[in-house]
Design a protein around this nucleic acid. Structure first.
Length: 457
DNA sequence: TTAGGGTTAG
């Protein structure tokens, strides 16, 4: 009894170290434990499999299985399901299928979790048809489906562009007595918001209330994000105050949504208030949170604060990502510090972030804004990949300098490459040509635009 | 052990 209890406590300790990403420490605790006579059991190894899969990779997780056998222990269904989850996280379907073979061979029959994970893997690979076959197999097979089976199915359908099918499945299940949990509702709300069906999303939100569930951070941030994306700022702010009046506690995700949205609509003062709130709660800042804050400081021109955060990130052992660099480059450009932006771009390339389209687009726009349009054109010509942002920005800036013929040329090459361009950029070129004494050119351009559009469809 | 929300540009 004493021995079992200490192994359990030992596993709790290993699990919390693994959760905190401290794998080396967890390993050294295991060694200490062995010295003290507490031997790792199947649960210990299962915790390690999951952590190694999550933080290092599938192969590292799989190697724990060997260690387990060497220690004289037999992997169980949880060991295999953790490995399946690891393979699914990286969309390694071959490894998943090999694991199924291995499980059957070793006399550990896959359970409903194994099939759920397999179905999830096919959805992640963008193969909803195969995923659907797995789903049918679960329904008709010997295992009864779990709530997660339906959740993974509905989530997979939404992510693969079949949100309405997910909604139909949901209604069908409800008719058969299925009682959705908050996760199910959130999956549907997310799916509907992603395709812009705010009305339907709101109906689901109402149903959540009627079902007796209480919407959580995820529900709110999802709907909030959708309001802001659809430029329904007023409704977004109303929802925000509703959340506030309900005494709703935010987490890091919710704070990022709110701060990001407020910065976007220029309400930086309010954004800063939310930032202070967030700091008070003592939330552990991750890269996304840092990026959100750096973006806020860049937009208010407080670069010193932004650089302080960059130092803090480094001290914490975190690594800036492409968002961080893009935010810095855009911020410096917007503040007119094109030199600083160019330097940061070089620094970013030095770090190995070599094909950052968004950062280059910001730089091109920044160069135009300080009147260095020819330099912007040079950068544009050197770019391996361009998108609708690149062209829209250049065309608009060329028009501002009354260089309508160059703008027209770029406009056409954009449309001829099958990309869209901002309507306002198109209008600027056509109006510019017309009003600067080239109405004939404008007319010709209009026809060319029409043909380019037809050909690109 | 599985599933859901957050950060960048015209």
């Amino acid at each position: 009894m004493g021995r079992r209890l200490s192994t359990r406590l030992f596993n709790v300790c290993i699990a919390s170290l693994c959760k905190a990403h401290k794998l080396e420490k967890a390993e050294s605790v295991i060694i200490d434990g062995i010295r003290l006579g507490v031997l790792p059991d199947v649960v210990t190894y299962n915790i390690l499999i999951d952590a190694y899969c999550r933080f290092i990779g599938f192969d590292a997780g799989y190697s724990i299985l060997h260690r387990m056998r060497e220690a004289g222990l037999t992997p169980d269904i949880i060991s295999y399901n953790s490995l399946l989850a690891g393979a699914t996280r990286n969309c390694q379907i071959d490894q998943s299928l090999d694991l199924f073979d291995e499980m059957i061979q070793r006399g550990i029959p896959p359970d409903v979790w194994s099939y759920n994970t397999l179905m999830h893997c096919f959805f992640k690979l963008g193969k909803p048809d195969v995923a659907n076959k797995v789903f049918k197999d679960i329904i008709l097979g010997e295992h009864s489906p779990s709530t997660a089976t339906f959740n993974i199915m509905m989530n997979g359908l939404c992510k693969n562009g079949y949100t309405y099918n997910a909604l139909m499945l949901f209604r069908n299940l409800q008719r058969h007595g299925f009682e959705p949990g908050l996760v199910t509702y959130n999956i549907l709300v997310t799916g509907l918001c992603k395709i812009g069906r705010l009305g339907s999303a709101r109906r689901i939100l109402k149903e959540i209330g009627e079902s007796g569930h209480i919407p959580n951070a995820i529900t709110y941030t999802t709907v909030l994000k959708c309001f802001f994306r659809k430029k329904k700022f007023l409704e977004g702010l109303e929802l925000l105050s509703e959340m506030k009046s309900k005494g709703y506690t935010y987490d890091g995700f919710a704070y990022c949504t709110v701060i990001g949205a407020l910065v976007k609509i220029g309400k930086v003062k309010e954004a800063a208030e939310y930032m202070m709130d967030m700091m008070k709660t003592g939330i552990e800042l991750d890269m996304v949170t840092y990026n959100t804050l750096i973006n806020m400081y860049c937009k208010t021109g407080e670069f010193e604060e932004a650089y302080k955060l960059l130092d803090e990130i480094e001290k914490k052992g975190l690594e800036c990502d492409r968002y961080t660099h893009t935010i810095m480059i855009d911020g410096l450009c917007k503040a007119g510090n094109i030199e600083g932006a160019a330097q940061h771009l070089k620094y970013m390339n030095m770090l190995g972030f070599d094909s950052n389209l968004v950062a280059l687009n910001c730089f091109v726009d920044g160069l135009c804004k300080v009147g260095q349009t020819d330099d912007a054109m040079k950068v544009y010509k050197s770019m391996e990949v361009r998108d609708s942002f690149t062209y829209s920005s250049l065309v608009q800036n060329l028009c501002r300098e009354r260089r309508y013929h160059s703008a027209a040329k770029l406009l056409l090459s954009c449309l001829r490459s099958g990309m869209k361009i901002l309507k306002s950029a198109q209008r600027a070129v056509l109006l510019g040509l017309r009003h600067s004494g080239f109405p004939g050119e404008a007319k010709k351009l209009k026809s060319k635009i029409r043909i380019a559009r037809i050909l690109s469809h």
